[in-house]
């Protein structure tokens, strides 16, 4: 594996039971870049993130993060590796019984022996970075969707991770929150000198901040390139995906029996 890549995936296969989700996937995430993995709903994007985080183990192939093969690590090794990662979940996944401040302080209190005054200063700095220092005392239930996601982002970067993963960070946000989050993804990545993986199906917002893009369909990478290359791509699936066309490589109709036969019109009028 090249030391320039923070994550390297080759020949990755994975399935739940008999249902196979990922079918021989190859992907590289270079250090310092913001890379997105796009694809329609249910194509295995979130599963891929869980494999990188070590929550699932590959059936075949390898996932190497910062030089360590994730599938081969034991529990302690995995927990050690996860200390280099931060993850933003789709709806934030804030701890609802803790205040905004305590949520961001959680990883620091659980995983470091920092004295409380330092934890306080660090938390306020992280919250300041996402623009929510003034909301430190609020409870998660008092936040709007966009604010909750920013707090979760502050929590994900609480310990200055080297790899930040985003699971659908743009889902269900208003245009202002959307711009704020996408801007934060880029600035935090560059300020921390981290590497980011953004799983999303939001083309417009993510194209502004990306360095490189992978497009997934049916458990495989079907197209890859810089945002400009992707938008100009003439591969059928990429074309349909990036232009939002209704019919094409992905048919509008879910496969089923013949329409005429199903309506029992077979013998009439022809």
């Amino acid at each position: 594996m090249s030391p320039d890549n923070f994550v390297e995936i080759s020949g990755l296969q994975f399935g739940y039971g008999r249902r196979s989700i990922l079918k021989g996937l190859d992907l590289r995430v270079p250090r310092g870049q913001v890379v997105s993995i796009m694809g329609g709903s249910g194509c295995g994007k979130t599963t891929l993130l869980r494999l990188i985080g070590g929550a699932l183990r590959p059936s075949q192939g390898s996932v190497v993060v910062d030089g360590e093969s994730v599938g081969a690590l034991g529990r302690d090794g995995l927990y050690r590796l996860r200390r280099k990662m931060g993850m933003l979940f789709q709806f934030g996944a804030l701890f609802t019984d803790l205040s905004v401040f305590d949520n961001v302080a959680f990883p620091m209190r659980e995983r470091t022996a920092l004295p409380e005054p330092i934890v306080r200063d660090l938390v306020l700095m992280k919250l300041h970075a996402v623009g929510l220092r003034g909301a430190a005392k609020l409870m998660p239930a008092e936040l709007s969707g966009g604010m909750a996601r920013r707090v979760a982002l502050a929590r994900a970067v609480a310990l200055d991770p080297e790899l930040i993963m985003y699971d659908e960070p743009f889902t269900g946000l208003d245009p202002i929150s959307l711009a704020v989050i996408s801007n934060l993804i880029r600035t935090l990545n560059d300020a921390l000198g981290a590497t980011s993986i953004v799983v999303t199906h939001d083309v417009r917002e993510s194209m502004k901040i990306l360095d490189y893009c992978y497009l997934m369909a049916e458990g495989q990478i079907v197209a890859q390139g810089t945002p400009a290359e992707m938008l100009a791509s003439d591969k059928p699936y990429a074309r349909q995906f990036f232009r939002g066309e209704i019919d094409g490589a992905v048919p509008f109709h879910y496969p089923g029996a013949d329409y005429r036969t199903e309506l029992r019109l077979g013998n009439r009028d022809r």
């Binding site: 985080g53 929550a55 927990y79 050690r80 996860r82 200390r83 990662m85 931060g86 993850m87 979940f89 789709q90 709806f91 996944a93 804030l94 701890f95 609802t96 959680f106 990883p107 659980e110 995983r111």
Partner: peptide
């Protein structure tokens, strides 16, 4: 159950904190 449904337990695991212990 709700902590699980809202991915709080998964988030904890990703922070290298064992939800069974915590």
């Amino acid at each position: 159950g709700l902590m699980k449904a809202t991915e709080q337990l998964r988030a904890m695991e990703m922070m290298a904190v064992d939800p069974i212990a915590r």
